[in-house]
Amino acid sequence: MMADKKSPEKPDKPFFVGYLPMPAALARFYWPLALLLLAAAAAAGHFWAMQQQSAGEATWRPAAPEVLRGVLTLRPYPALHRFHPQNPGRIESVLLVGQGKHAANLPARFDGRAVAIRGAEILRGNWRMLEIPSVTENENGHENSGENSGTISLAEIPDENALRAELGFESLGGVVFRGEIADSKCFLGVMKPGAGAVHKACAELCLLGGIPPMLVVQNAQREKFGYLLLNTDGTSAAKSLAPLAAESVQVRGELLRQGDLLFVKMNAGGLARF
């Protein structure tokens, strides 16, 4: 049998009992340990935070709503098209989404009309998105000045007919892209980071709510490009792609352009995980 070889009569080690004064030898051990733990907590917090990587430059301005004017199209995804303020020869198309994880729910009678829309801008690179609060219209349906102006109202814009003439879909040919399916609202700046596995549930809920799905493709220089995805019949693919949100896929389809928005209309069987 193994026996404890320490001398039974040698001075006992300090014994801690919580409701009694701490033995001096233990107190000498614990005060430096407490200070060490405090320093370790501070260092760990700083160190771990520094491991985070940037989610890229993007901005969401919910506190500073803007009024944008242009021609509204509701399909396949609501968008406002206008001549670019800094480059009038180019069309800028602004995607429209609702608040939270919801699509913009705009009255059909505004489709194809020149309108003024108020909302919070979401900006990433050349992308501009407008988050629209719950839709209200002013009484006569036309833009007013002042606080009575609704979220959306009819407006008069210069070169309206010229702009409308530019809004047809142009086919740019067949493409094969690999990338991640993201919800465009989070990816463009509402959440940072707004992509990746941790964000999957959020992206899935956004797509179920009708937020336009975007294929985010990264090139060798780590530049990111976004393509809005459409079903084979050219309709919104938001709900059908929800289960694949935040996953890496290969998409085969037809590249389309409307305004400065790029779409991929997926071929039948043209979508696969990789």
Partner: peptide, 25 residues
Amino acid sequence: CVALYLALFIGASDLAGADALSAPI
């Protein structure tokens, strides 16, 4: 320790500027 950790983590995170991370995240 908890307060120090959270303060240093949040303080060291990029919360300002165009490439800031979302504060809730």
